[in-house]
Amino acid sequence: MVLTIAIPLRSYYGLEDLVTLRHLDNCGKLMLVTGLIVDYGYMCEIFLSWYSKDEFEWFMTRNRIFGPYWMVFWSVMLCNVVATQFLWSRRIRRSPVALFLLSLVINTGMWVERYMIVVTSLTRDFMPSAWGQYAGTIWDYAVFIGTLGFFVMMMFLFVRLLPAISISEVRTLLPQAEVKEEAEEVVS
C-alpha cells in the first residue's frame, strides 16, 4: 500500500533523489517478507485442516478451494502467492513501474482475502439451515468506493498541507551533518 502511494507521489513531485531506488528496493524486500509470511499462513491453515481429520475444518477448506467461491480463493492465490514471488528478482524491485503494478495486484489480493474470510465463513455455518449465498449489492460497493474516496481525500490533504518527507530527518543524511572528530581536537 505504501508503494501504491509512494511511487506515483515520487514521480509526480519529482522526489526521485529523496526516495531513491534503494528505498524502493528495500520496500520490495519488506513486501516479499510479509508476503511470504502470508503464504506461510495459507500453507499452515490448509495443511492443518487436512491433518486434523476434522470434518468441519476440512469441509471449509474444500469449500473455499472448489466451492461456489472458488474464483475468490484462486484470485487470492494468484495475487498473494504467485505475484509476490516476482519480488525475489532484484530487477523488478528496482523498477518503479513493475513495483507499482505488483503493489496494485497485492492490494487487490489482500482485499479479496478479506472477502474470502468473511464471505465463505458466513455462507457456510455449522448449521446447513443457515447456509446461503452472498453477492455485493450497490450499497456494498458504494460503501467500498466511499471509504476509498475518504482515504484518498485525507491522504491528499496530508500531502498538500504537511511535508510529505520529514525535512529534519533528510537533512541528517547530508554529508555536512557529520560532526567531524576535530571537535575533540579543537578543545584539547
Binding site: 499462513g41 492443518l48 476434522d54
Partner: peptide
C-alpha cells in the same frame, strides 16, 4: 489437537 500458530 492442532493449531495453525504452533509452528510460528
Amino acid at each position: 489437537w492442532f493449531s495453525t500458530i504452533f509452528g510460528f
